[in-house]
């Protein structure tokens, strides 16, 4: 690569810097499960299944999420970021009570992505809906558009961020499906915590992978999408609702 790079440098300095990154990089790291130099692909569609029958009255998923992502509040529930929250439901007619975690549903047709003026709110090829904080101007139109109240605007200065999870005042954020963990081949923190400390109500997987556990569970028992009337094709599915 080196002679090539030199030639590039001779042309224009700026172009060289940008152009050599591609070829130069491939030498660096070895291939893993999905190697760092392999882009997220449409072959996968990451998703979650939440079995409300197994969801116990705990908040292990919430604690784990906020710990993993360095989301710390100031005891101001309406301005603190809430990437995931436990919701209690009670049927108006019958009084039947349930509890479940609610977070970004990682829609195939996300309203937050449609409305974002700068394209900061986007859907990655593998179905994970993210906010590119580099281009988020903090207009909060996505917060208005989300059917699930899943997005949080950062109302206060932030410090002590996790290296993998940048967060900052004036931008919008939400559940990333622990994209940094998923990219390493791990499961999201909420799922891990639910299986360890909770009711083992959450399954993470690839909705496209017919051999996977998630696919099997969804194939063999009925499940629902929240706000199915909006036809968003959510990546998070619920059972027992």
């Amino acid at each position: 690569m080196k002679p090539e790079r030199r030639r590039f440098l001779g042309w224009t300095a700026a172009a060289a810097a940008a152009a050599t990154l591609g070829p130069g990089l491939r030498l660096v790291e070895l291939a893993l499960a999905r190697s760092p130099e392999e882009a997220a692909s449409t072959l996968q569609r990451w998703g979650l299944l939440i079995d409300t029958a197994s969801c116990s009255d705990c908040d292990a998923c919430v604690t784990a999420c906020h710990e993993e992502n360095g989301v710390r509040g100031h005891n101001r529930p309406l301005t603190d970021a809430q990437w995931i929250r436990k919701v209690s439901l009670r049927d108006r007619r019958t009084g039947f009570a349930q509890t479940l975690p609610l977070m970004c549903q990682h829609c195939e047709h996300p309203p937050c992505v449609d409305v974002c003026p700068t394209g900061a709110s986007f859907r990655r090829a593998d179905g994970i809906v993210l906010v590119d904080k580099h281009t988020c101007i903090g207009c909060r139109y996505c917060v208005m558009a989300c059917p699930f109240g899943a997005r949080s605007f950062v109302h206060e200065p932030v410090s002590g961020q996790k290296p993998d999870v940048p967060r900052g005042k004036g931008t919008v954020e939400s559940c990333t499906l622990c994209v940094h963990r998923v990219d390493r081949g791990e499961t999201p923190a909420c799922v891990e915590a639910c299986n360890r400390d909770g009711g083992a109500a959450m399954v993470f997987g690839d909705l496209n992978d017919a051999a996977g556990e998630l696919h099997r569970r969804l194939r063999t028992a009925p499940s629902t999408q929240l706000r199915a009337d909006l036809a968003l094709n959510t990546g998070v599915r619920y059972q027992g609702l």
Partner: peptide, 19 residues
């Protein structure tokens, strides 16, 4: 905006987000 969003029709909803 003050009016709560309808996510689960027919259910009463409560949470830390004041759903």
């Amino acid at each position: 905006q003050a009016y709560p969003q309808l996510i689960f029709p027919g259910k009463e909803m409560s949470s830390s987000f004041l759903d």
